[in-house]
């Protein structure tokens, strides 16, 4: 299938309770802003936070960001009004906490469709990110990822997942190793993006570097951030290096050359270039471009 390329390296949570943070968040380098109605908003302020997020997006939606709203839990008393406010705010996506089954996704999607219809928004245009934060979510990750055409990403939540597993949360995160891989496999099978868990110690930038390096090597497309100072570090690991870009350019040039000469198989440096290698090269170039890297000499090999 055609692999989609989009930039979701960093998603920064911003509390719906803090106008100051919402305003400043526009200027950071994160690809996605997640306006939060859930954990960062006290129960007594849910009504006010909905109005803040709704008005923020209706009046001053950030132009160059992918905009997400995290609503409260599917079974909470807040979900219906959250959906009313969040859909009408017209974000790019909603992020749903603790998703455990395809049915849950479908029921949220149906409610969203009703609101979209009523508000004159194209039905199905608002995407879904499903937070996977329990063993059940991991076990059902593939059915969740393929439950509805709105689903474009699964995002891993470590705290609740480890609690559900009776596991201890550690900095090295070995207890998350299986969940990370399981979620990734489901995402790859479904063709959706895989977003890694939060690194919660905002003062440990070295720890963050190790953690995000591992996430990138495993194959994740991005990572959730909880503090602005994490953004540049995370971005840097999900931005291709010059060496990777140069290699990708050579791969694509070789493929072009092969097409021109009508060759079935193409080799570079003595290895065959198969379809996955070509796809990976395309992703690398798209990521680099989207990250603002100027790519010169694209035809230098041709």
């Amino acid at each position: 299938m055609e692999q989609r390329v989009s930039l979701k390296r960093t998603s920064l949570y911003v509390s719906g309770s803090s106008p100051a943070n919402i305003i400043e968040a526009v200027f950071y380098n994160q690809d996605c802003i997640v306006y939060d109605l859930e954990d960062s908003v006290p129960t007594s302020e849910k009504d006010a936070a909905r109005l803040i997020v709704y008005n923020a997006l209706r009046h001053q939606r950030p132009a160059e960001k992918y905009v997400i709203i995290r609503v409260n839990g599917i079974y909470s008393e807040f979900i219906d009004e959250d959906l009313e406010a969040a859909v009408r705010a017209r974000p790019d996506a909603l992020r749903i906490p603790k998703v455990e089954s395809a049915k849950e996704v479908q029921s949220i999607s149906a409610k969203m469709a009703a609101i979209e219809r009523q508000a004159g928004i194209e039905v199905g245009s608002i995407e879904l990110w499903c937070n996977i934060e329990s063993y059940l979510g991991i076990l059902n990750a593939l059915e969740i990822a393929t439950a509805d055409s709105r689903v474009v990403a699964l995002a891993l939540g470590a705290e609740d997942y480890t609690a559900s597993m009776k596991a201890q949360r550690t900095k090295k995160g070995l207890e998350m190793f299986y969940a990370r891989n399981a979620l990734l496999m489901a995402c790859r099978a479904a063709g959706v993006d895989a977003i890694d868990m939060v690194f919660s110690d905002i003062n440990d930038l070295e720890g963050l570097r190790e953690d995000v390096a591992l996430a990138r090597n495993l194959g994740f497309d991005g990572k959730t951030a909880i503090h602005p100072r994490q953004i540049d570090i995370i971005n840097s690991y999900f931005t291709p290096s010059k060496k990777e870009i140069d290699y990708a350019l050579r791969v694509l040039a070789a493929v072009e050359e092969g097409k021109r000469l009508n060759k079935g198989a193409v080799a570079l440096d003595g290895s065959m270039i198969d379809k996955p290698v070509e796809l990976r090269a395309l992703t690398t170039i798209a990521q680099a471009r989207a990250a603002g890297i100027k790519i010169g000499g694209e035809n230098h090999a041709g």
């Binding site: 400043e24 200027f27 503090h227 100072r229």
Partner: peptide, 8 residues
């Protein structure tokens, strides 16, 4: 964070 970004 905004001032840090400007500084950087």
């Amino acid at each position: 964070p905004r001032d840090l970004m400007i500084a950087k």
